[in-house]
Design a binder for these strands. Structure first.
Length: 876
RNA sequence: GGGAGCGUGCCGGAAUUGGUAGACGGACUCGACUCAAAAUCGAGCGCCCUCGGGCAUGUGGGUUCGAGUCCCACCGCUCCCA
């Protein structure tokens, strides 16, 4: 940071003041607040309602550039839509439950509620400096009782609908955060999304929501979400992971003898490979393992099961891992051919997935193949690859479709047809059923932590799990709790809080001491914003009908599955409970890219060097050893010393520059490389506008009255009007459909360039029209500066209440155009021609041109292609 | 391995249905103003050139009067699922 302080570098102009963004922005922010400019107006008769929403933040206390980008994008959308005449709902709130508050409490002895409220105040103050048109009267914090009583109410609603239940299951345990996690909250490496710890498996009794009941709806309705990025829809579809297949029963037999009456049911997506099965595998913790283990194998099996309990799901199922397993010493019969098959247990089969049992078909499944090879199990090919003659060398499994062989009566069928045929045959005989299987698991919502929404359940020894009566909500989170971060749910230590009479029978009972996953709280906040002060219900049907679905939702791609899937599930479940008429919450979704900071890395040591220690950015050297540093752009983080503090940027250049820069530098979906030199450039543009408006004020522009255009326009007038109206048309286009703020701002720059130095030459009406349009087009992007301009040039009221400009097609009409002349597709010259010339005359003009003479050498062209308004292509 | 997306000057990035590739900005160079600097203003800025032009949108093919855009193959990067 060596540049001079920019606010000192704008010289005073004759007749005007200097552009001092800080003073100007604070002044307008005060004014807007006093005027209630950002208060939501209920839609009037015939007025469209528009709901613009940013994913609400966790109140960490510090605003970072990612937040700024997110909220500025949404703010521009909201502001444009208001100017276009819609009633706009643009609220903000706080995803305020969560572990950082609890950890702060453990480390510093503060109360999580106080810590959170302080952070909210701090972040709100930072947000306010950005000039966001947020209606703060609708603010929500999920940790406040007037919000979470309704989270509890909705939990009871789901419970009443049979969608919440308790079960004992093997679940993900985060050893750092000391709590369980939902499957969605464990990443591809088997680590917690929050703490980064490798999760462990534990068998615990927990609360779940039946999101799997909605697997089909969540998957099928993705097709309706045409306003969502394809990528996010694909990710959700993969996560839900629907596969069609069959359940097949294998009867258990005594060694060499009759069936025992027990059966093992497997799920397979490949019933066509049934003849190729050479063993059956159970999950190590499958309930039948005990009964099916022979005496000889008992000790080995017990040892194996103990080992498996210590491993994570990922460690067990990773494809590059050796497949461990051992035989139980008992057998089943393959129902399709009566052949006995050994029963094994193995690491790669999970009890919770499908039926917890699979059939092993080494020839046609890669994991089975590896397992069979390791344990010398037989391999039998039953699907032949197309065009393959004779037996396959089988260096690996053939997992594609083909033609059945060695499959009795099914030989010769294509594998796809065979799936149906073998399943149907099994159904006839009673040993198969066609079934759909999902990857999606039920949502585990219990958390063994304090700072969350209490689960409103009372456990009674005689009545079981009893919902807290709704009139007793909220079940308040007690303040005085000892937090250690260890040893189970903190609420469980509070005997006085825990002890309660059963609402059913009055007997001594105990409250549930787990809290809810914070994703519960964020699964419905967008509904509460529509009706934020309702004391009777979480929201009224009318308010929802008025505002929902969210027209434009903006947030990070990291929620592609997590929050966005849960919120969709809530919406569907509440629809089915009769509380909502919508089935999808978010009509359009914009996933904004990351904000990256310039990062200096020593390639030999891997050390990150702070920018402040780099003396020459053009030739960065490591002060430690003098070696050249790599310059990278990476996600801003403390460890990489590449963060840029939004407050510092605003202090230096003002919010308008920060807003303009962040929108201009990259399209919203792409990662953005933060570069201080470019911010400086953006600031220069705003200063240029400042001088332009100064100049306009000097010419006596007065925006309050609309002047009629003179009947005769000069050439300059017509050129400027064309520039103005083509900017309006282009910006309007950029802000419709696919949002392209970056090109919209470049159009503003072009317009400013077109006006520069010509203001004096314009007739008064054209000058006024141009300034009025420029300022209104600028208003959503740089709201403070636009307001200042509007006022200085005598506009009445706020520019933010002005209508969005619309372009005059007449102004775009040109008398003459540049006609490009191509010869065989290559540009050889151009010609100024009347804009309304028809095809024939264009052809004649082109043929008569010097360019044609030169390149055609007197020969008539073989072919002439005329694109009116653009070009003529002569093909010799 | 499967799926999705991307690849354009020194850099960020523009390019309706295929129709003048490089808009707009940054960096850089030169000039004006200045005692000087900053700021500002003006000009230049893909590569090669014998100044006619030739070559250029990851690579190689194809379709077309015409391809950054469409098709095929390949290379590289990112993300998701295995």
């Amino acid at each position: 940071m060596t540049a001079a302080t920019p606010s000192n570098s704008t010289p005073a102009q004759p007749g005007g003041q200097r552009y001092t963004p800080l003073e100007l922005e604070e002044r307008w922010q005060r004014q807007w607040k006093a005027d209630g400019l950002d208060r939501t107006e209920e839609p009037a008769e015939g007025q469209k309602a528009f709901y613009a929403l940013s994913m609400f933040p966790y109140p960490s206390g510090t605003l970072h550039m990612g937040h700024v980008r997110n909220y500025v994008i949404t703010d521009v959308i909201a502001r444009v839509q208001r100017m276009r005449g819609d009633a706009v709902l643009h609220p903000m709130g706080w995803d305020a439950f969560g572990l950082p508050a609890e950890n702060a409490a453990i480390e510093r002895g503060v109360n999580p509620a106080d810590w959170t409220d302080r952070n909210i105040a701090q972040m709100k103050a930072q947000l306010d400096r950005l000039g966001l048109s947020i209606d703060w009267e609708r603010e929500q914090a999920t940790c406040h009782t007037d919000y979470y009583r309704w989270t509890q109410w909705l939990f009871l609603e789901l419970e009443a609908g049979g969608l919440a239940y308790q079960k004992e299951a093997t679940v993900n345990w985060d050893p750092i955060d000391q709590t369980v996690l939902a499957n969605e909250q464990v990443d591809g490496d088997g680590r917690s999304w929050r703490s980064g710890a490798l999760v462990e498996q534990r068998k615990l009794r927990q609360w779940f929501l039946r999101i799997t009941d909605y697997a089909d709806a969540l998957l099928d309705d993705l097709d309706q979400l045409q306003g969502w990025p394809e990528r996010v829809r694909t990710m959700q579809a993969n996560w839900i992971g629907r596969s069609r297949g069959a359940e097949i029963d294998f009867a258990v037999v005594e060694p060499g003898g009759p069936t025992t009456g027990e059966r093992i049911t497997v799920f397979t997506t490949r019933p066509d490979t049934l003849y190729g099965a050479s063993y059956v595998v159970l999950a190590p913790d499958h309930p039948l393992v005990e009964a099916l283990t022979s005496e000889a194998q008992r000790d080995a099996v017990t040892a194996f099961r103990d080992l498996m309990e210590t491993l994570s799901q990922d460690e067990r199922t990773a494809e590059d891992q050796p497949k461990r397993g051992l035989p139980l010493g008992s057998h089943v019969i393959n129902p399709v051919n009566g052949e006995p098959l050994p029963i094994w247990i193995a690491d790669y089969v999970l009890a919770d997935y499908g039926t917890g049992a699979v059939m092993g078909v080494p020839a046609h499944d890669q994991r089975d193949f590896l397992f069979a090879r390791r344990h010398q199990l037989p391999l039998r090919q039953v699907v032949q690859a197309p065009g393959q003659e004779g037996p396959d060398p089988l260096g690996e499994a053939w997992t594609e479709a083909g033609v059945l062989v060695h499959s009795g009566r099914f030989d010769g069928l294509a594998s796809n047809d065979a799936k149906a045929a073998i399943t149907a045959f099994g159904e006839e005989q009673g040993w198969a059923r066609s079934r759909v299987q999902y990857r999606l698991r039920d949502w585990l919502i219990s958390r063994q932590r304090y700072w969350g929404c209490p689960i409103p359940i009372i456990h009674c020894p005689s009545c079981g799990a009893v919902p807290v009566p709704r009139e007793q909500l909220p079940v308040e989170l007690p303040r005085a709790v000892e937090l250690s971060g260890r040893g189970g749910s903190p609420l469980a230590q509070l005997e006085s809080w825990k002890a309660v009479a059963c609402p059913c029978c009055g007997a001594d009972a105990q409250r549930e001491t787990d809290t809810m996953d914070t994703f519960m709280c964020s699964s419905w906040y967008f509904l509460r914003f529509a009706d934020p002060r309702n004391q009777e219900k979480p929201f009224s049907a009318e308010a929802i009908a008025r505002w929902l679905p969210v027209q434009h939702y903006v947030g990070g791609i990291e929620h592609a599955i997590l929050h966005l899937l849960y919120a969709r599930f809530f919406t569907k479940a509440l629809h089915d409970r009769g509380l909502l008429t919508i089935r999808e919450p978010f009509q359009r979704l914009l996933t904004q890219g990351m904000v990256q900071g310039v990062t200096y890395r020593n390639p030999s040591t891997g050390r990150y060097v702070p920018g402040t220690q780099v003396s020459d950015p053009a030739d960065p050297r490591d002060p430690a050893d003098g070696s050249r540093l790599e310059i990278l752009f990476e996600k801003m983080s403390k460890s990489k010393h590449n963060g840029v503090d939004p407050a510092a940027v605003i202090d230096r250049y003002g919010a308008d520059t920060a807003r303009m820069f962040i929108l201009f530098k990259a399209p919203p979906e792409k990662d953005l490389e933060w570069d201080d030199a470019d911010v400086e450039g953006q600031f220069r543009f705003l200063q240029r506008l400042w001088r332009l408006v100064d100049q306009a004020a000097g010419c006596g522009v007065a925006l309050q009255a609309i002047l009629p255009l003179p009947s005769e326009l000069t050439t300059v007038d017509r050129d400027v009007r064309r520039a103005v109206h083509s900017a309006i048309a282009a910006i309007d286009e950029d802000l419709s459909g696919e949002l392209q703020f970056n090109t919209a701002i470049s159009e503003l720059m072009k317009l400013a360039n077109a006006l520069g130095g010509r203001l004096e030459q314009l007739s008064e009406a054209v000058r006024q029209e141009a300034l009025s349009a420029l300022i209104r087009l600028l208003a959503p992007f740089a709201p403070h500066l636009a307001e200042e301009f509007w006022q200085r040039l005598g506009g009445s009221g706020s520019v933010h209440r002005e209508p969005w400009p619309s372009h005059d097609p007449e102004a775009l009409v040109q008398d003459s155009i540049e006609l490009v002349i191509q010869v065989k597709g290559k540009v050889r010259g151009s010609l100024t021609v009347p804009a309304d010339a028809d095809r024939d005359s264009l052809e004649q003009l082109a043929l008569a041109s010097d360019v044609a003479q030169k390149w055609l050498e007197g020969q008539p062209p073989r072919r002439v292609i005329v694109v009116p308004g653009k070009l003529v292509n002569l093909v010799p």
